[in-house]
Design a protein around this nucleic acid. Structure first.
Length: 282
DNA sequence: AGGATAGCCTGCGGGC
DNA sequence: TGCCCGCAGGCTATCC
């Protein structure tokens, strides 16, 4: 469920907790959720790969992925998948909760315990990837991503959609076309842009592409401001849930009246994803 | 080669 | 009450 707005909230809230602090110790409770890239190949993760001893320099996001970057360059890529959570905890968890796969204990400049970061992911669609430098993370993982959906321009969207005959809904979910959009925000942006999700991506007019790029930026920015969408259990690093689900116009509302024209919203399957739209407005 | 499909995984809610 | 099934879905591998 975490899409761009939810990941952005996690990035912002975890950054305030960890930047400038030092990683005292790391525990990897499930080795198979982590992959390390070192000396030109994929190896089993060690403590140092997972930032042990590092001072955290910054947190970045691209699409739905996070990067935690140390001041010596070591970089950790975190993907939350469907059910991943990155949580800050002031107190040391006595016994790691179920599905917690990794923990980091941080210290402040004075060497005092500062708190703990927990990566929990029940369904394990997410994971961790480590790199010796942020450049290698970008090259190995982020290079295949399209432009970030939060700032995508009409021209970027146009070139991303120009060479595919897939339904526009399916193309919006393709992270190579643009990074960060999932099922919720694809439906919401298409509704705001008044575009039918079944339209062939390469057949959109210039005007529709203008509306769609603007709707993507607007819906994602609004969702970030609202703290993201919490359908079941999403929360930021401070365990605060989002409220944007109350502003959804179409997602999850198949069979209910369109908030604009009152006609019944239709739910169909596109690219194996439930897709809700208004047959009149879109 | 682009596009469709299967599979990974757990939790929850509906139906019987 | 309890069990089973379907569904949720980001992403990769595989097939057509």
């Amino acid at each position: 469920m975490p899409e761009l707005p939810e990941v952005e909230r996690v990035a912002r809230t975890i950054a305030t907790r960890i930047v400038g602090r030092r990683v005292a110790s790391v525990r990897l409770l499930r080795r198979d959720i982590c992959e390390s890239f070192r000396n030109g190949r994929t190896v089993k993760p060690g403590q140092r790969d997972l930032l042990e001893g590092a001072r955290i320099a910054g947190v970045r996001r691209r699409g739905k992925q996070l990067a935690i970057i140390a001041d010596d360059g070591r970089s950790l890529c975190i993907h939350l998948g469907m059910s991943g959570q990155l949580t800050w905890s002031a107190a040391a968890p006595a016994r790691p909760a179920q599905h917690v796969h990794a923990t980091w204990s941080l210290k402040d400049d004075a060497g005092a315990n500062a708190g703990h970061v927990l990566f929990r992911d029940p369904r394990r669609f997410g994971g961790l990837w480590t790199f010796p430098s942020f450049q290698e993370l970008e090259h190995r993982r982020w290079a295949r991503l399209g432009p970030d959906a939060l700032t995508i321009t009409r021209d970027e969207l146009t070139s991303g959609l120009a060479n595919t005959t897939r339904p526009v809904k399916a193309a919006l979910l393709d992270q190579r076309v643009l990074a960060g959009v999932g099922n919720i925000y694809a439906d919401e942006a298409l509704f705001r842009a008044r575009i039918c999700p079944r339209r062939k991506a390469d057949r959109l007019t210039r005007d529709e592409l203008t509306r769609l790029s603007a709707s993507l930026r607007l819906v994602l920015a609004e969702a970030i401001a609202a703290g993201g969408s919490t359908l079941r259990d999403f929360a930021d690093a401070d365990s605060i849930p989002g409220a944007y689900q109350h502003s959804h116009q179409v997602y999850g509302r198949g069979g209910q009246p369109c908030p604009v024209c009152g006609r019944i919203l239709k739910a169909v399957q596109i690219a194996q994803r439930t897709t809700v739209f208004c047959p009149a407005c879109q």
